[in-house]
């Protein structure tokens, strides 16, 4: 089963877990499994339109899923999914 690594601000919505092993054959299925039982996670990861939020990056091992097959990317035993907060800013408007 793939493993999902959860960044600190989201752990409070996932029962305090740093990482969770989930079922699922794709990235989307694995994230859905993670959110099952942790509904408050959904609003942090997905927009109301059901899209992964722009400030959430998801990596399958060392690859950004946007450069793979996004949420349809296949996952399997031994894979690690990392949720990486997108951090930006600057003094400019």
């Amino acid at each position: 089963m793939p493993k999902i690594l959860i960044p600190t601000p989201l752990r409070q919505y996932a029962g305090g877990a740093k990482e969770v092993e989930v079922a699922g054959a794709t990235v989307g299925e694995a994230l859905a499994e993670l959110m099952t039982g942790h509904e408050s996670l959904r609003k942090h990861l997905y927009s109301d339109e059901g899209r992964l939020r722009s400030f959430v990056n998801v990596y399958l091992n060392d690859e950004d899923i946007r450069f793979l097959d996004r949420e349809a990317t296949a996952v399997g035993e031994g894979d690690t999914l990392s949720i990486v907060p997108s951090i930006a800013g600057g003094r400019g408007a």
């Binding site: 907060p85 997108s86 930006a88 600057g90």
Partner: peptide, 20 residues
């Protein structure tokens, strides 16, 4: 950041993954 970096930044996500 893909523009003028005098007043904007985006943390390179792969660098951030490595830090994690």
């Amino acid at each position: 950041y893909e523009g003028e970096r005098r007043d904007r930044f985006v943390i390179d996500p792969s660098d951030q993954l490595a830090a994690q």
